[in-house]
Design a protein around this nucleic acid. Structure first.
Lengths: 208, 208
DNA sequence: CCGACCGGTGAGCAAGCGCTTAGTGCGCGG
DNA sequence: CCGCGCACTAAGCGCTTGCTCACCGGTCGG
């Protein structure tokens, strides 16, 4: 099994139990991704899960708690993907290639989840948002570490490492916005293409 | 006056009249950018404009019409920036540099407007959304034209022109999401930096 | 000097929202 | 075969929402 298949096979909330709570979470992810958090009603979520509106409140205190749980699970996965690439063996170019490819494959393959995770952050209340922002900083740190290593080794040519880190993450994250299952590109293709684009952005010397 | 200053000086809705309608539009842009379309109430918009809730409906039929007008004006500006760069004299690299720089300067300098324009599209009703999607296609066409010219001239090395077009626009658009006035970067700096990154992405030969 | 006009207001309607509560059906230990 | 616990529902509460409407005050042509 390839790393790509691993990323796509795993349903992010497979660890959520009981079954009814998971069904509600899946329904919420779909609804939030389609219409946005504020435009989604608790009745809509419960309806998609085949339950009455009140059932939601047996498993979650509020609608916002649902979003918070989704966001936390999603961000944890993002951090795991990027840190795993940053910690991997190999040249900085290989690690950056892996980071971007896996990160993009995840955003494309799970674009409904990713859309919620990346674009509904403002709907969280202050405390929960602060929690999630911490996880995002870890994403930033992982990418920055790879770039720094590459510059130190003389493999990358990057005048502004924080700026380049931001641009790389921004490029990958925005995949969740435009990726469309009906489109011609598979997650794998986008991942490979984006890895190539990013290596060029950081001025990686072609492998000899 | 530099092109950058021109882009930033012009308030996008300076052509909106009468004065009260413009004040309402400015208020709506701020509110939509801060909290999102669905989380913004008509009372909030009217309040920011210093008017009663009912005043909104003298100048706009619905809250959605306000969003539609904002979106149309914003997209028209985006199309103008990109087409102007595509039509400009100069090498493909120079035209691409100008397109990205001006587009990014606009997204950073008017990041509240840009956020609404780029991220609240789904809140439009079907007919209005279709209208705006047409304008977005023109953005795509302008960038694609520059890339095609560059490849034909042998100046760029791009294996997948539609894919690269998408990536370039995606990178620029996402600036509206993360750009923060309190941050250290000015719109000009981000624009210059992003133009450089994009030229690398398309494998532009360094100018001789 | 007047009355038509028009941008703006105060009050409020119908609908829909997040969430609660009293009650129901069902599985399971004794 | 009973009765308890619990996941779940029907009904609905209090509130906010987008939007409306009767009314008001300043301006201006005649």
């Amino acid at each position: 099994m390839t790393a790509t298949e691993e990323i796509l096979d795993e349903v992010p909330w497979s660890g959520v139990s009981p079954d009814a709570a998971r069904r509600l979470m899946v329904a919420a992810v779909e609804a939030f991704a389609e219409r946005g958090y504020h435009a989604t009603t608790t009745r809509d979520i419960a309806g998609r899960a085949g339950m009455s509106p009140a059932a939601l409140y047996i498993h979650y205190k509020t609608k916002e708690e649902l979003l918070h749980k989704i966001s936390t699970i999603g961000h944890a996965k993002a951090v795991a993907i990027l840190q795993s690439a940053a910690d991997a063996e190999g040249t900085p170019a290989e690690r950056l290639e892996q980071a971007v490819r896996h990160f993009v494959v995840w955003h494309a393959g799970h674009h409904t989840t990713a859309r919620v995770v990346q674009y509904e952050l403002d709907a969280l209340d202050a405390e929960h948002r602060a929690e999630v922002v911490q996880l995002r900083r870890q994403c930033d740190a992982a990418v920055r570490r790879i770039l720094t290593d590459g510059v130190k080794a003389g493999d990358f040519e990057v005048p502004d490492i924080p700026g380049a880190t931001l641009a790389v993450l921004s490029l990958c994250i925005d995949v969740a916005r435009w990726f469309n299952v009906a489109g011609r590109r598979t997650p794998d293709e986008v991942g490979a293409s984006y890895a190539d684009l990013v290596l060029r952005m950081v001025g990686a010397r072609p492998r000899s």
